[in-house]
Design a binder for these strands. Structure first.
Lengths: 205, 205
DNA sequence: ATCATTATTTGCCAAATGGCAAATGATAGT
DNA sequence: ACTATCATTTGCCATTTGGCAAATAATGAT
């Protein structure tokens, strides 16, 4: 890709792309040409607080990378309660895997908790990257495996702890996010009521 | 591989290998030659109840496939309580991923809950399979991704439910295992005390 | 700045779960 | 069949958490 093409990136956009490649290159190597090809498929997306990145009942059609902000994945359990399954913050990939891979309707919402800036790839472009870039699939596999293991390791221990310990663990994992996420979402993530969480917060200080 | 080589398999062993390939072939295709090569690397392993498949503080050196029995993965939390993270039953792959992949000491035990029959591959053989069989890595990746997603989907919902609902969900997922797993292990998996679980069982009938 | 709306905190009491110890039941080895 | 050992159940009471409603605080729109 000719250098000229770079000219149309805004300064901020270049910084975002850099964050994306910093992330990707932790999982494998790419040459300049491959990176440029990936960059050529990238689009930016701004999500306002509470907007959906993907929705239950619909097919996930894009892969995203968060450069700014926090998303959450949530669903409704059979009592009709809205449950936050997990949060995803800056410098992480976001994709509703099951839905995106198999082109089936999702059962979860992916929603912006705060205003978000993202880099996104359409399904078509993403598949093209997979077919074109040798080794890209291996990198993607590693990224996804790591993310899945992280989800297991983060959520699973909550089951066996009392409410206060759950909150303390939450703060360890998302220290910079605690103050940007509404109490109600954290409560549902931790499996406690809002009022309990409010009391826990009071007792901790 | 010549047919003759098959002759040394016991009848039961062939049935086990068939179970293994039934499992594998759900995730991708292999030709006869590839399957024979895989089979040539397979060993059987019998684990008695409470024996360890892999241990915390050690490096996981094999990949297993359970043909009979139930394993559990457990660890000790910072209160010294033994927590069962999950159960793995018949016709599933068992590997302590983090430890096996990166050759680092594990922080979890993988232990037989009942007497188990397994098919196992040494680290060396497993890597050889990955290098030799085209497409094997893709199959393995699918198997592992699915297993990880399953772990998330099974354990995560427990956080937001009360003890009785947790147990009902557990029974849905492991209907055939409920009666083979000691109450204490189930209790620690669900994050409730043994006595509470005992009372829950009484109340359900 | 003011109001309307939403988020969080608090009080009160009920329900669920834990902690501990004893009783009962199940199992394996001799 | 008989212990010894381990697993499960049960009773009693303390603690934690939930449910509901009202009070207070924070936020956003005008």
């Amino acid at each position: 890709m000719p250098n000229g093409k770079r000219a149309k990136f805004s300064f901020k956009y270049i910084a975002d792309m850099e964050a994306l490649f910093n992330f990707i290159l932790k999982f494998g190597n790419l040459n300049r040409q491959q990176m440029d090809f990936i960059a050529s498929k990238a689009k930016t997306l701004t999500l306002h607080k509470e907007a959906y990145f993907s929705e239950a009942g619909k097919i996930a059609r894009q892969v995203g990378f968060i450069t700014e902000g926090i998303l959450r994945v949530c669903y409704y359990n059979n009592k009709g309660e809205e449950i936050t399954k997990y949060f995803i913050d800056e410098n992480n990939l976001v994709v509703d895997l099951e839905s995106f891979d198999n082109e089936i309707c999702s059962s979860a919402y992916v929603q912006a908790v705060t205003d978000c800036k993202m880099i996104v790839f359409s399904r078509k472009d993403w598949l093209e990257l997979l077919q074109t870039i040798v080794g890209w699939d291996a990198i993607v596999h590693k990224i996804i495996s790591r993310a899945l293991m992280q989800k297991v390791e983060r959520r699973s221990p909550l089951v066996s702890e009392d409410a206060t310990t759950r909150y303390l663990k939450f703060m360890e994992i998302y220290p910079s996010a605690v103050n940007r996420i509404p109490l109600a979402y954290i409560a549902s993530y931790l499996g406690v009521t809002q009022s309990s969480l409010s009391r826990i917060r009071k007792n901790i200080r």
